[in-house]
Amino acid sequence: MLITQLKNREAIDALISGTCFIVNCHGCGEVSFPAAEAQALQAELASQGKVTGILTTDYICSPENMKVNLESRRSEIDEADMVLVFSCGVGVQTVAGYLEDKKVCAGCDTYRLPGFQGVTPLEYDCEQCGECFLNLTGGICPITACSKSLVNGQCGGAKNGKCEVDPEMDCGWERIYRRLEQLGRLDLLKRPVQLHNYATDDEVYKQNN
């Protein structure tokens, strides 16, 4: 099981520049999704004229399914300055991977719960590690794409773009750097030092309240 939790309001406001197209995933029964809170937030954003469209669907982790869904809403996506995804980390990565030239952001953090973990037979991987880094890394997860799960940039171990641990594996941070370069968002690498918070969702809740 996993639980997706809305990022706090300031974090979401800070993400939104201009207008956004919203994707909600109500896919798998293994996910506890904050549907009511997400809906209230999205209604508010829509009333401010910041939303070009809302797509609520299931299993956005399936690339084929996602492609059909996104293409059916292409004009609203093109019209928007960014895409805001409310799903687990896999869903955000699938959308970001498909819409390579678009700013794609995560509206949720994903935490682990005991039990069945859902079915995501994909290259995209989410460790449900809590506070999501995807908004700083162009939609490529540094936790799963980097052998050391580094959150502050590449180590000195990549050779010809390949990881020191596995010569078959692309250096995750090299991919992130290239994606941010493509998006014109290298400024994200100048953000303050990141620390991975290993607290669970209820511990984070306690820390923040």
Binding site: N152, G153, Q154, G156, A158, Y177, L189, K190, P192
Partner: peptide, 23 residues
């Protein structure tokens, strides 16, 4: 700190160097 000046991804190394300076 360390930096790898002859790395084949020298721009990413420079960006990391900048982060180290900031830190």
């Amino acid at each position: 700190a360390v930096v790898s000046p002859c790395s084949d991804s020298v721009d990413a190394q420079l960006s990391k160097m900048e982060r180290k300076v900031m830190a």
